[in-house]
Design a protein around this nucleic acid. Sequence first.
DNA 1: CTATCTGTTCTGAC
DNA 2: TGTCAGAACAGATA
Length: 294
Amino acid sequence: MPELPEVETIKRGLNKRIVGKNITDLSFDWPKSFLGKKEDVVGREVKGVERRAKVIRINLSGDYNLLFHLKMTGQLIYRAAQLRQGFAGPQNQDFSGGHPDHNWHAKLPNSATRIIFTFNDGSKLFFNDLRKFGWCKVLNNDQIEKIFCDEYGVEPFDSKFTVDYLLLRAKKNPNRTIKQFLMDQTIVAGIGNIYADEALFSSGVLPTRKIKEISLSEWKSIRENVLKILELGIKHGGTTDSDYVNAEGEKGGMQNYLKVYRKAGESCPKECGGKIDRMVVGGRGTHFCENCQS
DNA sequence: CTATCTGTTCTGAC
DNA sequence: TGTCAGAACAGATA
């Protein structure tokens, strides 16, 4: 479930594993998954991996970048080379990130594999995407900067993510619901369905509340809880499992710390006596406690 | 079998 | 300009 914490986890994992390597080959089976020219990528060195919003940027030598969006079912899976038995560094550890699934570390490539990058040491990076909504684009630095600037709002962990900023943006969209506001990538980058529900639950604010009716103290609470829930997500590696020895691919991680998401019918974890309910807000499944969110 | 659900985002209609 | 259904796609689930 690639929202900000998951994508951040992937970024950190890849930074430990592919920086400094050369891409020696690239193949893809679905034209819409790879938007670029193979010749622009093969032969280039990986300089670094960054995250902006839910997007991953792999910076290559020369004026080239790979930009990934995992959308709903994308995964990036690093598969170490089989060469160095007994070497314990991260280079030699498999790593997965993105949409959780039972077959993380099953045979690769598999039916969901869209792109395969091969590095000069024999290791590989697989871009899997069951539903084919995700993409990888080859872009130059200017194009990347423009996208990062134009299409996304502040990063939650940036110092610009303040209550004043939220109030400013709130003036422009007074009639939207708070949930849609939080998920609008041009306002705050990286929040998706799960973390929006969780942050609003922690804040005691109903997802359907109109922006213009949110009080100052509620904005403060929402801001703090967005940060808290995202930090918790990153701390637990999102819903990512990086331990390939452990077969429990989709377990562990953040799934175990969610309080309302997909918990409809259960008792409120705040023990307020209420139950978690579900409704649709902006076309998205939305989970909340009717009793302690208002 | 059918109907409905799913973590994202973009487009086109109104 | 804001809002909303539908699309892009492929499952799993009831």
